[in-house]
């Protein structure tokens, strides 16, 4: 793979990463809670697309609304059944609480579907590729990138142009001031979880078009999302978009460099290590991220 090739692939993955991280960051911004289960939400989105397309025998792309809906419901259910109660406790309990949710969903999936790696075999875009000049793109990845961009733009529009979206942003800037102005914090929290679940559900549906589904996939993507959020700045929507792109490019470009050097440590196995290291370095040296305002 050439460098430019990797760059383009990285941008496509990056758009998807941005969508994954978006929900995490909205939830963080609005209620200062880190949702460890976010990767599991993605995993459930993936399984939703996998099973819906398989059982109903429809194209995986058509299942996206179902994945989004499942994500929204999951977000709302999590908020009302668990997160609300965690809010009363200390920060340590909030951390463990969403951690518990993460484990629960992961092993629920393992219990229901087993540990097998599954991949969607049939679909309009699957196995097809598009050549533009010297570059070859998988249609599935192309669709994932473009649709992620649309979904992201839609949420961005929602947050900045609608009344609810603005209320959500007000809450994330100053909870108390927002509640004095009559914005109901509880409702805002639930909406944040709904959006968080919905967006990551869509991302899962898109990912399932070209990536294996298995119960423990969540941790990988939640760490990527953490890296994006840290890089973009906790609470910053614009920031998370560019951070997603950056992480995507990093993850694709790094192995290209690695393949030039013959070493145990620069192989493609380490593409995610680079992501974790990025997270670590960013939070340590620039805790507010590249675009962040919250610390």
């Amino acid at each position: 793979m050439t460098l430019i090739d990797a760059l383009l692939q990285g941008i496509l993955m990056g758009l998807l990463f941005a969508l994954v991280a978006l929900g995490l960051n909205i939830i963080f911004g609005v209620m200062n809670i880190v949702n460890f289960a976010h990767g599991e939400f993605l995993m459930i989105g993936m399984y939703t697309t996998y099973w819906t397309s398989l059982l109903l025998d429809i194209d995986p792309l058509l299942t996206l609304p179902v994945a989004a809906l499942v994500g929204v419901l999951l977000g709302i259910a999590s908020y009302y059944s668990l997160i609300r109660y965690l809010l009363r406790g200390p920060a340590i309990a909030q951390l463990f609480g969403t951690f518990g949710l993460m484990l629960f969903l992961r092993y629920l999936a393992q219990f229901l579907f087993g540990i097998d790696y599954r991949i969607i075999q049939k679909g309009l875009l699957i196995g097809k590729s598009l050549s533009i000049g010297p570059f070859i793109f998988d249609w599935t990845k192309l669709a994932a990138g473009i649709l992620s961009l649309f979904a992201f733009a839609f949420v961005y529009y929602f947050l900045n142009k609608t009344k609810t979206g603005k209320a959500l942003q007000a809450t994330s800037i100053n909870k108390e001031a927002a509640s004095y102005m009559g914005i109901k914090t509880d409702k805002m929290n639930a909406i944040a979880w709904a959006i968080g679940g919905g967006t990551v559900g869509i991302a899962g549906g898109l990912l399932a078009n070209f990536y294996y589904v298995y119960p423990t996939i969540g941790i990988l993507f939640v760490m990527i999302a953490f890296a994006c959020v840290a890089l973009g700045g906790f609470g910053s929507i614009k920031g998370v978009f560019f951070a997603g792109l950056l992480v995507g490019i990093l993850e694709m470009v790094f192995p290209v460099f690695g393949s030039l050097v013959n070493s145990d440590f620069l192989g493609p196995h380490f593409k995610f290590t680079i992501v974790y290291l990025t997270y670590f370095i960013i939070v340590v040296f620039r805790p507010q991220g590249l675009f962040g305002w919250k610390n």
């Binding site: 668990l82 965690l86 406790g89 309990a93 909030q94 463990f96 609480g97 951690f99 518990g100 949710l101 993460m102 484990l103 629960f104 992961r106 092993y107 629920l108 999936a109 393992q110 219990f111 119960p215």
Partner: peptide, 15 residues
Amino acid sequence: GLDFMIYAMLIMVVS
């Protein structure tokens, strides 16, 4: 996975 699910429920309830 059932054992871990019980585990996870415990974590959530305790938290």
